[in-house]
């Protein structure tokens, strides 16, 4: 593959800044909170409970990705497998709630159908303030599910609503979302280790 380079590269500058910022924020990730999330997921799994994951935009894609990894990349031997559902993947249902009721209810109403005490609801959001993720957090609380929030910016309302919060202290969507992908892979790997131990 041929890549054209110039003496002065804007791209290289952006990339360097992006990587520097990622380095800094990844170094600051609260390991204790991440360990707590792993423990919650493992405990829920052992009790036969479910994990639900949700988010908007880039976070929706992270939610799907996370659900895929937690479902498949944690399988060890013939033991029971994690029950993981991303609430971002049923387009028919999402658009039905959005169209018929409101966009704010797209995740909360799915939780009312599926979630219960002992389940873990992972909410991924850069701002932590989108009305539909706040509604999801409230619904999860009303159902007795444990809520985990992966948030950026200042943490938003989710910071106060969720049981465990991992906050990435950046106002850049790309940086926050990159860190959240790192988090989901690290959590998946830790859950796999815990289950195969």
């Amino acid at each position: 593959m041929y890549v054209e380079t110039t003496e002065y590269s804007v791209t290289a500058g952006v990339l360097a800044r992006h990587i520097d910022e990622l380095h800094r924020l990844i170094d600051e990730l609260p390991v204790a909170a991440v360990e707590r999330i792993v423990e919650l997921i493992v405990t829920a799994h052992r009790a036969g409970r479910h994990v639900f994951i949700l988010g908007n935009g880039g976070s929706a894609s992270t939610a799907s990705h996370f659900a895929c990894d937690l479902s498949k990349a944690t399988i060890s031997g013939d033991g029971p497998r994690l029950r993981v559902t991303s609430l971002t993947d049923n387009i028919a249902l999402l658009t039905a709630w959005a169209n018929d009721t409101s966009y704010e209810r797209v995740f909360a109403e799915q939780l009312l159908s599926l979630a219960a005490a002992g389940d873990v609801v992972v909410i991924i959001s850069a701002s932590g303030d989108s009305p539909n993720v706040l509604a999801a957090a409230r619904a999860a609380r009303a159902l007795g599910s444990t809520t985990v929030a992966l948030v950026g910016f200042a943490g938003g309302g989710l910071r106060h609503l969720a049981d465990v919060v991992v906050h990435v202290g950046s106002y850049d969507y790309g940086i926050v979302e990159d860190c959240q992908l790192v988090l989901e892979h690290a959590i998946t790997a830790s859950v796999r280790d815990a289950l195969s131990a």
Binding site: A108, E109, L112, S113, A116, A117, A135, R138, A139, R141, A142, L143, G144
Partner: peptide
């Protein structure tokens, strides 16, 4: 609250989505 989330699981029909939503609004 802890009583309620435990009680919801005792049998089907104790709660339903309408009741859950009212409780969500109440909280």
């Amino acid at each position: 609250h802890r009583s309620w989330v435990a009680k919801r699981t005792l049998a089907r029909g104790i709660s339903d989505p309408t009741i859950d939503r009212w409780y969500e609004v109440a909280l």
